[in-house]
Amino acid sequence: MNHNITMPRSQEQVLATNKVLKNTYMLLSATMLFSALMAVISIYLEMPPMVYMGAVIGSMLLGMFVLPRTANATSGIGVIFLITGLLGFGLGAILTRYLAMPNGPEIIGTAFAGTGIIFLSLSAYVLTSRRDFSFMGGFLFAGMITVVIAMVANIFLAIPALSLALSAAIILLMSGLILFDTSRIINGGETNYIMATYSLYLSIFNIFISLLQILGIMGDD
């Protein structure tokens, strides 16, 4: 049975969906800018790489336990800025290491441009085709669980080939999540713009980090 049938929607539903989409993109832009500012501060302060791990732990705990409870209130906006600011600060510690490499600035620029192109292309694809990608949910969740378990193993094993394979898998999974999340917003499946922003931000952040890692390893002779 095909569940992916687009039902006729009332004008109110369409207006509500457009409002969620507009608010999501506005909040996403603001959080990206704030994150970039925090990354610049972190680079200026020359933070050690372990700050990244601390920032990821803090932001994940906030994302799992605090954000879902505050997402329907104004305080949710503060929490999402806290999460994205923390991730930006952690990212700065990673970027400091890349900037010390001979072709580091080129790798960072390429990863940044690549992430932007991937996000904009996938979003444009969903917004113009209006396709429903909700059928990908099971596959994406199962894929994420598999990747996270492999990531836990690689924290201690530190196998470069596994790290590279995980980065490639994360780019594919996060790209799928951008399709899935954007499709959910335009089809009315996601009505909370704070949670939608959080999900899209994480996809973009993970694509950037993974691209950075792939280009850092493969770009080196």
């Binding site: 049975m1 059928f135 969740f141 996270v148 836990v152």
Partner: peptide
């Protein structure tokens, strides 16, 4: 980090199970 990631798996598992069981099939 490993503990928080395993916590994420524990949080994701019910949603994944639900999506695979009752989610729309392509």
């Amino acid at each position: 980090l490993a503990a928080v990631l395993l916590m994420l798996v524990w949080r994701l598992y019910p949603a994944a199970k639900e999506q695979m069981k009752n989610g729309p099939k392509g």
